[in-house]
Design a protein around this nucleic acid. Structure first.
Length: 830
DNA sequence: TTAGGGTTAG
């Protein structure tokens, strides 16, 4: 065969098409599509799957020759049968099967016969003959082996009967036994092939299923409709869309594209392999094709892709069952085409097909995404009426739906009613807790899952790690990391990104960076996690250069990445760079400025002391500023001691959020530090009237796998005496080295000495002291505080770090401070 | 032959 003939497929296909039209064997639209698919995929399979490619060519070459003949290829192994002939054969087979109906058979006979060690080989043969016609009666490994043995004993194991034995083995999932027999056959019949292919697929040995399929075709056997669901499932699981499309072309040519199960499997494949790059838009295939083909077909007549293919298969199906509907609905739902999915549900109902558990578990995530708890609840009601509310699939969808609608109590209720809980139902609730900020409960449930012997999969780790990140529990995070490594999940991009985030939020930016550097692929999420990590640790320049590297490597920053880089600029005062990034969002990347970006820039200007500019910027935002955006400016006013502007800003905050406690507290502090006790008292009275209570400042530290919490001024901790002793001793030395208490941040109207005492009891200081007295010299101290670190404590901890020769890392609500040798990583810019 | 849960910010 000349290479040019191979590629001159267009004209051959036209002939083939002409031949089919009017014969009633295939309708034109179906056929055209198959031809398109075949045109695309056959070329790419030359070299990769030579047999499949040859088949495509063989068909075209057979046009104009014997219509009902086989054709042998030059490879010497390949046969091809044209479609309508195959159809006829299938019908005959069905008839033949019908004629055999009514054969009497009793398995017990075989057992009793064998027990009696029958000597008459003729009667043994008769029994086997009956058995072989009723293979479903054999229900155990023992019985199957017995039958096999009988064959061997009577020496009557023909190819046909061997195939039946193989199919019996495979139906019982006895792959090993089936293969032993299979390999003894010189030319296995179709039944033998399809049995092993199905068994490989059942046991998740997808690539072996596919290679068996290719071998089957190479051996000249023609598959029937029973084979394709397995083959297509294997293509799906191997994410081999090219092969799947080639198989599809073959299915159409065999006239099997009317088969219900085959079509359902086809739809499933196209739905699952969306975005796998079916539409050849570039690359090798084009290089190999003559220009004429490229012009005439690829450009003007692009192949249907992904969900379009699903729809097309669906529309062309002569009969559809509930699985067909469920598959297309799931396909739409997974590709984000929610309205289409819901439309299909309505259409399905109008065709009088009732939605089942499959349908609903595909539909519920849509309402999670829409945060439409009303419609979600309607489904919940329907599910209860249908009595399928204990279904694990539905259950986890419901848990997720309620959690995403901020109704975590309802999630808990659904979860508690589940009869069976698998790893996904646990994950749904763990994720729900994390999404609703209930990190401790997330960790607790994760532990319960492990205790209940439900093995956490990869998703479980990417779900629970953010809880550790938020709580700064490094020891738990490390344990989970160990679990991840042992589970072999260490190259999962979701988990790796979560680990990068966890380590950086738990104060270990070095470990975070190590994981990031070891990752094989980086996406925008992993880049953002490491950029944010460096930003939080005050490595603004490093963060900015990572952001540049990300762009250079062709990863397009999303809106979260911009939040990260703007935060980085903000923490080190890179005002000009930040403006550049802020503007590039809209000008270069077509991203809208969202509240977070405005907030980051406002924060940046405020920190940099450009308070008036920040005020103007917030006033002119395109989005209505929230209390929290103004709050960042308020805290900058407090840092830069601008009471006048602070009052203006506070007014703005109270206009949108009259009960903003953070603003009240900050204003109280500012009035106090300016000695304006009257205003302070007024504000406190207001807070009291509104029933507002100040959120207590607290800090925590991990010691021996336990978290020790300290509240400002609280002396209840069992180690308090030792802590005080330490602080008094260290204070003496600090004062000798020049420490002067900065009491301006103390809001109480008390004398200086009392103020100093109050500073003494600040939670971060207590936690640091506890850490130092309980650990070996040289151990790094990691403390987390729920609100911004106090200015005086910042100075004090610098001294403490120097005197005790410790590295002290304090995470407050916005960043990390690494205290080392008398200075802090933030460079006092915070 | 069909279904459910996940990472970065806020």
């Amino acid at each position: 065969m000349q290479a040019s003939d191979r590629f001159n497929i267009n004209s051959q296909l036209e002939h083939l098409q002409a031949k089919y039209v009017g014969t009633g064997h295939a309708d034109l639209s179906r056929f055209e599509w198959a031809v398109n698919i075949q045109r695309d995929s056959y070329a790419s399979y030359i070299g990769h799957y030579p047999m499949l490619a040859y088949f495509a060519i063989a068909e075209n070459e057979s046009i104009g020759r014997e219509r009902y003949n086989f054709m042998q290829l030059s490879s010497g192994k390949c046969f091809y049968r044209v479609a309508f002939l195959q159809k006829e054969k299938t019908t005959n087979e069905r008839l033949a099967k019908r004629n055999h109906k009514g054969t009497v058979f009793a398995l017990e006979n075989v057992q009793s016969h064998s027990q009696r060690r029958m000597s008459s080989s003729s009667s043994s043969k008769a029994i086997i003959k009956t058995l072989i016609k009723n293979p479903t009666r054999i229900r155990s490994k023992h019985q199957a082996k017995q039958l096999h043995a009988q064959f061997l004993r009577t020496q009557s194991l023909s190819h046909t009967s061997a195939s039946v034995v193989i199919s019996i083995y495979t139906n019982l999932k006895l792959l090993h036994e089936a293969l032993l027999l299979f390999h003894t056959l010189e030319s296995p019949p179709v039944l033998a092939w399809k049995s092993v292919i199905r068994c490989f697929t059942d046991q998740s040995l997808f690539s072996r299923a596919l290679s068996s399929f290719v071998d089957m075709r190479a051996s000249g056997r023609c598959p029937d409709h029973n084979v394709f669901p397995s083959v297509l499932k294997s293509c799906t699981m191997m994410t081999d869309l090219k092969l799947g499309e080639s198989v599809h072309g073959y299915i159409v040519r065999l006239g099997l594209d009317c088969d219900l199960y085959t079509c359902n499997a086809l739809m499933n494949m196209y739905a699952k392999l969306q975005g796998m790059g079916s539409n050849i838009s570039a690359g090798k295939v084009f290089d190999e094709m003559p220009q004429r083909i490229i012009d005439s077909e690829t450009m003007s007549n692009a192949l249907p892709s992904g969900i379009d293919s699903v729809r097309k298969v669906f529309e062309l199906m002569p009969t559809k069952d509930v699985v067909s509907w469920n598959t297309i609905i799931a396909g739409y739902a997974q590709s984000g085409m929610y309205e289409d999915a819901l439309r299909m549900v309505r259409e399905m109902a109008s065709e009088d097909i009732k939605p089942d558990a499959f349908t609903l578990s595909s539909v519920l995530p849509i309402f999670s995404e829409y945060v439409d708890v009303k419609r979600g609840k309607e489904i919940h009601g329907y599910v209860i009426r249908k009595g399928i509310d204990a279904d694990v699939y539905i259950g986890s969808s419901l848990v997720d739906m309620y959690a995403k609608s901020a109704r975590i109590e309802d999630s808990e209720r659904v979860f508690s009613h589940l009869l069976r809980r698998d790893s996904i139902s646990y994950n749904s609730l763990v994720a729900g807790y994390v999404q609703n900020g209930r990190y401790n409960e997330a960790l607790k449930l994760f532990r319960q899952m492990v205790t209940a012997k439900v093995r956490p999969g990869p998703v479980a780790f990417s779900t629970v790690l953010p809880a550790c990140a938020h709580l700064s529990t490094l020891h738990l995070g490390k344990q989970l990391h160990g679990y991840v490594l042992r589970g072999g999940y260490s190259d999962n991009i979701f988990i790796d990104s979560a680990l990068v985030d966890m380590y950086s939020k738990c104060g270990s930016i070095k470990a975070a960076r190590k994981i990031f550097d070891r990752m094989n692929v980086h996406d925008e999420v992993s880049w953002t996690a490491i950029i944010m990590g460096h930003a939080l640790h005050g490595h603004g320049h490093e963060a900015v250069s990572l952001f540049e590297e990300m762009k250079q490597r062709g990863v397009k920053p999303n809106h979260v990445a911009f939040v990260a880089v703007l935060t980085a600029c903000s923490h080190v005062g890179l005002v000009d760079e930040a403006w550049g990034y802020f503007n590039s969002m809209t000008e270069v990347y077509g991203l809208n400025h969202e509240l977070e970006h405005y907030a980051a820039v406002a924060d940046l200007l405020g920190r940099a002391g450009k308070l008036e500019e920040a005020y103007e910027f917030i006033s002119n935002m395109r989005v209505e500023p929230t209390g929290s955006v103004w709050s960042t400016l308020l805290s900058s006013c407090s840092v830069h001691k601008n009471l006048e502007l602070a009052e203006k800003v506070a007014e703005k905050i109270f206009a949108v959020d009259s009960e903003n406690m953070g603003a009240c507290v900050l204003m109280c502090n500012m009035y106090a530090s300016n000695g304006r006790w009257k205003e302070m008292a007024k504000l406190r009275l207001r807070m009291k009237k509104l029933g507002m209570r100040k959120k207590p400042a607290c800090s925590w530290i991990e010691f021996k796998d336990k978290t020790h919490g300290f509240v400002s001024g609280d002396r209840s901790h069992s180690s308090m005496e030792r802590i005080n002793e330490f602080l008094e001793a260290v204070m003496e030395q600090m004062e000798r080295e020049g420490y002067v208490a900065d009491t301006s941040g103390v809001l109480h109207d008390v004398d200086e000495e009392h103020k100093r005492e109050l500073l003494f009891g600040h939670s971060e200081r207590l936690a640091v002291a506890f850490g130092i007295i309980n650990t070996e010299p040289g151990t790094t101290i990691r403390v987390t505080k729920n609100i911004r670190i106090c200015r005086d404590c910042h100075v004090a901890i610098k001294f403490i770090a120097k005197i005790t020769e410790r590295e002290i890392i304090v995470r407050d609500n916005s960043r990390f401070h690494h205290f080392n040798r008398g200075s802090c990583s933030c460079g006092d810019y915070w």
